[in-house]
Design a protein around this nucleic acid. Sequence first.
DNA 1: TCATATTATATTGTGCACAATATTATTGTA
DNA 2: TACAATAATATTGTGCACAATATAATATGA
Lengths: 167, 167
Amino acid sequence: MNGKAADRTEAISADPASAHAAVDAAADNPLLLDLQVCFPLYAATNHITRLYGPVLARIGLTYPQYLVMLVLWEQAPQTVGALGARLHLDSGTLTPLLKRLEKAGLVSRTRDPEDERRVLVSLTDQGRALRGQALDVPATMAGNMNPEAIDALRETVTRLVDLLTGK
Amino acid sequence: MNGKAADRTEAISADPASAHAAVDAAADNPLLLDLQVCFPLYAATNHITRLYGPVLARIGLTYPQYLVMLVLWEQAPQTVGALGARLHLDSGTLTPLLKRLEKAGLVSRTRDPEDERRVLVSLTDQGRALRGQALDVPATMAGNMNPEAIDALRETVTRLVDLLTGK
DNA sequence: TCATATTATATTGTGCACAATATTATTGTA
DNA sequence: TACAATAATATTGTGCACAATATAATATGA
């Protein structure tokens, strides 16, 4: 936390000369920007994945598999392409992951009779039933965070995604 | 963006009855919380990695390798353990990554004579020289984002990490 | 109709990322 | 000096994640 970063609390004011602390710091060392923005994001995501690992292992899922199941519990069946669009993942990632979920008996993969290029991913009874076991995962993970912190976190993440994707 | 999420703009007020939109939503569907918090974070990080890929490929680095080099450009030599602590990565990730950087001639790995258990990771001349080529990476990536957005992003990420780690 | 282009998924190869374990070096203690 | 305990890094095995490419089905146009 250097001096310029500390100035940020006042940069919310309308003074354009001091409104861009990161840009000011970048004038000295441009690489500081990535060290302050991209690296923390990367570290935070790894941290989350690591925290969920043991909890999800109890219901036999990895973190990416859990996210796929979350989306399928919202709506199924879905094509691989639709899943990829929703999750921002390509087929090279999804195909083997879905095959593992199929092998575990949680989903089924069938060619769409309407269009044989598509593969429909459906939930099996076992896959649907797993939702019941997953229901307390968020609360377990939230654990010792208070409601205000969780809500602030959700808002912050939403803002982050808005900034990154569309603006 | 459902109704409850939209209420969030007013939840900054002191009214405790409406202050926890995410928690309210979680009462209906607990899994919505992870779908709204963890998944966007995961997607955003993948998105960033994908964006940096082509730009970093021009200087022969992957995204995680770039982050390691950023840390080494701040301070070198460092032990593998110190790098891991800074990057929140374990030796199973760092060892092969560092070997690839060594093979590329950017770093050298030597046992610490003081304590032969430690491995010191140093920058080679070529590794130090690469910094010059990396200097415009942040600006290239910032590209079409305006300074306000970048600064907001940095602040958002900082807030996010505070919420996730300490709080 | 029949090539050509497009679309959807799968495959291959490289590089993370981590848990569990192994290896080697140091420290502590009797 | 032994010898257990601890510490630092490496290895192994599994599972993402993506770029590049391949395969197969559908759509398009002369």
